[in-house]
């Protein structure tokens, strides 16, 4: 288990977007414990509101939410912050939507429920891709 997170990761800003409140909360706590700057959004629209005010390196986005379709949220994200790297979470068997998301410029996707370590790895890769240039309109 890679619980030892290096200190220099603390400036990685992460946005968690999922309408499953319990999931977002626990994930945020775990990631924050690893010295990431984590913000939570419980819906697509809330995520867009937050993105207007702050800048992020990586977003973890659930593709299946009640208020907005994940792909729509992804498109808005990519328009607002082109350098923001988005990791999509999708249900098993819904890889079609994930592939669509990849075409829209998402960084990668994971099927839900995913291994925490795998997710952390993806976040680090995405942050590296983002390269510290936190594009913001």
């Amino acid at each position: 288990m890679s619980n030892q997170i290096p200190a220099d990761q603390s400036d990685i800003r992460l946005l968690l977007v999922d309408d499953e409140v319990g999931f977002v909360n626990v994930l945020a706590k775990r990631i924050a414990r690893r010295h990431f700057d984590v913000q939570k959004a419980y819906s697509g629209s809330e995520a867009i509101q937050i993105l207007r005010k702050s800048m992020f390196d990586v977003a973890v986005l659930d593709l299946k939410m009640e208020d907005m379709d994940g792909i729509e949220v992804l498109k808005v994200f990519k328009k607002m912050a082109p350098r923001l790297q988005v990791i999509m979470l999708t249900g098993h068997g819904c890889e079609e939507a994930a592939r669509e998301g990849m075409a829209e410029g998402a960084f990668d996707y994971l099927t839900k429920p995913c291994e925490f370590d795998e997710l952390m790895e993806k976040i680090l890769e995405a942050a590296a891709q983002s390269g510290g240039d936190h594009g913001h309109i």
Binding site: E20, G22, F23, V26, L27, F116
Partner: peptide, 8 residues
């Protein structure tokens, strides 16, 4: 979803 939460 619940399973994911439980695991997390």
């Amino acid at each position: 979803n619940p399973v994911a939460i439980m695991v997390e």
